[in-house]
């Protein structure tokens, strides 16, 4: 189970860590449309000597951790602002930030950023393909709205008139089937399918699927 429990029990720490952290782990939930998740970790130098933070290292290139300055006098407070780029990540994400001080290089602090990135709708597959010369039969993309997301409007458009989309609602607003049909498959074609939603209301998201004849 918890190797960390045992390990932390047995961590022989030779010196006192002077930095007292308000919190070392933060769990955040993002909203669809958010580009990043931000967490601030505040600390105070509770020792009687100055502390120098000489390295802040994140476990992922997607996460940056910023510090305004490195030296903290006794009693002084500061903060590390961590930003995790969401990109196309979904679901549960855990990133770590390692903070080392010059005075206690062997006892770094590990800050954790736990993010829950919701997936309001799930498309499978996200692309459909036909070979040139293949029979231009319709292929289906299944769209399912995740529980708890009040998406009321789903509109699907193709940006290429030679590849048509036809939507059937298996379960209105919750489950849809997008039938994609190319006009013909005599030559390579490409279409981006735009799935427009009304959610969230302040920043309605559009999702992308693709159709290709190649």
């Amino acid at each position: 189970m918890r190797l960390s429990l045992l390990l932390s029990l047995f961590l022989a720490v030779p010196a006192f860590a002077q930095l007292k952290w308000d919190t070392m782990e933060q769990s955040l939930k993002s909203k669809p449309g958010d580009r990043e998740v931000v967490a601030t970790y505040r600390f105070t130098n509770t020792g009687t000597t100055p502390i120098t933070i000489d390295n802040v290292h994140t476990s992922c290139g997607c996460t940056t951790a910023a510090l305004t300055k490195n030296e903290y006098a006794p009693g002084e407070s500061g903060q590390i602002v961590a930003r995790m780029d969401i990109g196309s990540r979904t679901g549960h994400q855990e990133k770590s930030i390692l903070v080392t001080t010059k005075q206690n290089p062997k006892t770094p602090t590990i800050l954790r950023l736990i993010a829950d990135i919701p997936e309001p709708l799930v498309m499978k597959p996200t692309f459909v393909m036909w070979g040139v010369g293949e029979s231009p039969k319709p292929k289906t993309i299944y769209i399912k709205v995740t529980d708890g997301f009040p998406i009321k409007l789903l509109k699907v458009d193709s940006d290429n008139p030679d590849i048509k989309v036809d939507v059937s609602e298996v379960h209105p607003g919750v489950e849809l089937e997008v039938h994609v049909t190319p006009k013909d498959t005599s030559r390579p074609e490409m279409a981006t399918l735009l799935i427009r939603t009304d959610y969230p209301s302040d920043n309605p998201q559009t999702y992308y699927a693709y159709a290709k004849v190649k």
Partner: peptide, 23 residues
């Protein structure tokens, strides 16, 4: 390379420190 994952969980420094010194 973005790969800390769940392999090493957070131990922090203050609480385990106290716990370990006590131990």
């Amino acid at each position: 390379c973005g790969c800390f994952g769940r392999s090493i969980e957070n131990t922090g420094t203050l609480w385990p420190l106290i716990r370990n010194l006590v131990l």
